[in-house]
Design a protein around this nucleic acid. Structure first.
Length: 769
DNA sequence: GCGAGGTAATTACCT
DNA sequence: ACAGGTAATTACCTCGCG
């Protein structure tokens, strides 16, 4: 029979020694189903050292090999004869070992589910018309199982109505971070997309059981929470085992199991960890659930309760903690609903299933996308190899003309690197180090050559992505802006853009299968050439260039001349540039990549300055923002100084929240990898000795307190600091004064004069001034 | 033993 | 764990100082 299904996930399963792919799906009628496909053979390739026919003959005699035949493939753009080996999936390791002396192996490192997706052009999070035969009844979360005969992609876009649950778990630690071998689960909060909320509290065994029953009863397609992969699932599995319960939250009564990219897989459901998603949003400073919710315009909790404060609250005000936990569950649900288009488009375009598409690093997502293209055009998929990390020159950054400028236009090249790659045909299979073979274009600045007689692999992929994006944008226009379809298509075109923009970085990534340093070098060299030419043209037109970085130019605004420049760029360089914004006023510090501007729409833009950095205390950041704002809006020097003085006075009088004095730094390495002491590492070590689990990637918040010795010797975790211990002078001299001086330098106020003013502020001499 | 001065380590930003 | 370019702070080392 014929049915339409949306693919939720794919898994490779073993059924009585037979390899099968199970496609977990949702029918257009809401049916939850498994489509089973028996997989007889898995293929890989051998590029033989000697005669291909002879190699094929030898290989076909190896046990486990179903067939071996000579095929024409491409390898880094060159035609090669390869032996396509088909073998039993379970035998692939043995067979590849047996043939490896005959030549170089390709694609034997792909997992069966990936192989299936590539070979059949099956994409998760997409709709298919399926020809199926009923295979079994349902039960345990699926309505039916089918044998899949064949499938065809359909035009449908948006996901079906999914059942989603947001989760949060609370544990009761004896001391420090909860430890699964020791501390019980004390509360489980559940928020369902149908509006029902549940919270299980009390005796551990009964609440875990109630949770499992709830999952079985509601049978969600999506389970979402924060830190599910790194904390909750491993924790719950240990607790359940201890209690003699099976954590059967998967369809067909399965437990969560560890999968690729550090992700936990739950059969038949999407297990989505919001922490993975948060990590990629550069606008977030620490990637907390609260920040993510705020970023997406969703409600905040009544009470901010981090892990360091929660044990105390759990003893003192249980209700508040439970309410907070419920907020986390609800927020997780809402966040998933808000970002689901992004997740599903990324998944369907790259072929990485939705539950781990954001657990995988951006490079792997793009790689999956490239692999799909490679199979389509017959390019062999190289294996990743360990490489040294040689670096190469990047973008060109101009020294800003320091001071306050009025009327400055910012001109940006649109997608400069992808455009250059397209224009020059730069790809891992088209670029070589000089000397140039015939028909190659020599790029002097990089000492490289680019093939011009054939289209590169990346060029083909980029062209396709650009075309597809244009098509999506065309279709988009047919729908109203607030429609379901418009939002989905918009997510789709953004995803295509993200992938296109990542191709340059991918080519320069030593971990990439299609790594080519010369290629990446050529891109940046041509980028520098392009911006340099644009600068010269701007000058020639009489535009004064005040700053520039990689693909942007800041010029004194003159509409006519800027228009001329933009036209010239399009005509002569074959690239697109646009007038990005106009600053009424902009302040350049003496440093590159740091400036403050006020746009013609009266928006304050702070770039690179401490106010936009996560590792300065909020009080200093707010002060810098206020000072920059005043200055850009034309306040007098006296007015700015008096505001500065007020802020210092507030600080001296301890008229600030302690939390605004916390300095946050990420633990970028494992604690034992640090070579020197730093405040955050010393504090982290102390936390660890007290039973807290802080690891690589965590943010450590500390406050500098009074005392002797280096800063790291008098930094304390914020949860343990009383405002009276704070070293106010440190905050004045090393936080507030420097960040204000950075801005005020342009009106001749140097750090030492600010320091002098600060010395008298709040010292009981206010009336004197 | 101690401060000056230079440099390495470290983080987080910009494009 | 997609790239390089950059600023900034703090820690640490070396050197001179008789």
């Amino acid at each position: 029979m014929e049915k339409k299904f949306w693919i939720l996930d794919l898994s490779a399963e073993k059924v009585k020694d037979e390899d099968e792919i199970w496609i977990w799906s949702i029918g257009e009628d809401g049916e939850r189903a498994v489509l089973r496909v028996k997989v007889e053979g898995q293929r890989f390739y051998v590029v033989p050292k000697a005669d291909p026919l002879e190699a094929a003959r030898k290989i076909s005699n190896i046990s486990g090999v179903i067939s071996a035949q000579v095929v024409e493939k491409r390898l880094f753009g060159e035609k090669v004869s390869a032996v396509e080996v088909l073998c039993k999936p379970s035998k692939i390791e043995d067979v590849s070992k047996a043939v490896k002396d005959l030549g170089t192996l390709y694609e034997d490192d792909l997992r069966l589910s990936v192989r299936f997706i590539l070979d059949n052009d099956v994409k998760p999070a997409s709709w298919y018309k399926c020809f199926v035969e009923q295979d079994g009844k349902g039960g345990n979360g699926v309505n039916c199982t089918y044998r899949l005969i064949r499938m065809e992609k359909t035009e449908e876009l948006a996901a079906p109505k999914l059942r989603v649950v947001g989760l949060d778990f609370l544990y009761e630690p004896k001391i420090g971070t909860p430890i699964p071998e020791r501390d019980p689960v004390v509360a489980i909060s559940i928020a369902r997309d149908d509006g029902i909320k549940r919270q299980f509290t009390g005796e551990e065994k009964s609440i875990i059981k109630a949770f499992i029953e709830e999952v079985e009863g509601y049978n969600p397609d999506v389970i979402v929470g924060y830190r599910l992969n790194t904390s909750h699932w491993p924790y719950l599995l240990i607790r359940a085992k201890k209690l003699g319960i099976k954590l059967e939250v998967g369809r067909l009564k399965t437990e969560p199991h560890q999968s690729v990219y550090g992700h936990f897989s739950i059969a038949g459901r999407i297990n989505f960890d919001l922490k993975d998603y948060a990590r990629e949003i550069t606008e977030l400073e620490r990637g907390t659930l609260e920040e993510l919710a705020r970023f997406l315009g969703l409600p905040q909790p009544k009470l901010q309760l981090d892990e360091f404060l929660y044990p105390k609250y759990w003893k003192e005000d249980r209700e508040k903690v439970l309410e907070y936990s419920m907020w986390r569950a609800s927020a997780s649900l809402s966040i998933f609903q808000t970002i689901s288009d992004h997740i599903f488009t990324m998944s369907s375009i790259t072929g990485v299933p939705p539950d781990y598409v954001f657990s995988a690093a951006a490079g792997y997502r793009l790689e999956n996308y490239l692999m799909e293209a490679a199979v389509r055009i017959g390019e062999l998929i190289p294996k990743p190899v360990e490489r040294a990390l040689p670096t190469y020159p990047g973008g060109k950054v101009l020294t800003p003309e320091k001071g306050i400028h009025e009327n400055v236009a910012v001109i940006d090249f649109k997608a400069m690197y992808p455009s250059i790659m397209l224009k020059y045909n730069i790809s891992p299979d088209t670029v070589k180090r000089a000397p140039c073979p015939k028909g190659f274009l020599f790029i002097e600045e990089a000492g490289t050559c680019i093939a011009q007689d054939r289209k590169g692999f990346f060029t083909e992929v980029l062209e396709r992505a650009v075309k597809e994006r244009e098509a999506v944008r065309d279709i988009m226009k047919k729908y109203p802006k607030d429609s379901r379809e418009y939002r989905f298509l918009d997510a789709m075109q953004r995803t295509l853009k993200v992938l296109a923009n990542a191709m340059y970085g991918y080519m320069g990534w030593t971990g990439a299968r299609w790594y080519l340093r010369e290629g990446a070098e050529t891109v940046t060299a041509l980028g520098r050439r392009t911006i340099t030419e644009a600068i010269e043209k701007a000058k020639e037109l009489g535009l004064k260039v005040v700053y520039g970085d990689t693909d942007s130019l800041f010029v004194k605004y003159d509409k006519e001349k800027v228009d001329k420049l933009l036209n010239w760029i399009e005509r002569e360089l074959g690239l697109e540039a646009k007038l990005e914004k106009i600053y009424k006023k902009v302040i350049f510090t003496e440093a590159k990549k740091k400036y403050a501007g006020l746009t013609i729409d009266n928006v304050l833009d702070l770039v690179g300055l401490e106010a936009v950095r996560g590792d300065w205390c909020k009080f200093a950041k707010d002060t810098q923002r206020v000072i920059a704002d005043l200055l850009l809006r034309g306040a007098s020097k006296d007015r700015v100084i008096s505001v500065f003085r007020e802020r210092i006075t507030e600080l001296r009088n301890k008229n600030v929240d302690l939390i605004d004095l916390v300095i946050w730094k990420q633990l970028a390495k494992r604690i034992d990898e640090y070579e020197v002491s730093a405040p955050h590492t010393v504090v982290a070590k102390e936390l660890i000795s007290e039973g807290w689990k802080v690891t690589k990637g965590d943010y450590i918040g500390f406050v500098v307190v009074k005392g002797k010795g280096p800063i790291h010797a008098r930094s304390k975790h914020y949860s343990k600091v009383d405002i009276d211990e704070v070293d106010i002078d440190y905050y004045i001299e090393k936080q507030i004064v420097p960040v204000c001086a950075r801005i005020l330098n342009v009106i001749g106020l140097k750090e030492d004069s600010l320091l002098k003013i600060a010395k008298t502020a709040g010292m009981g001499l206010e009336s004197f001034f």
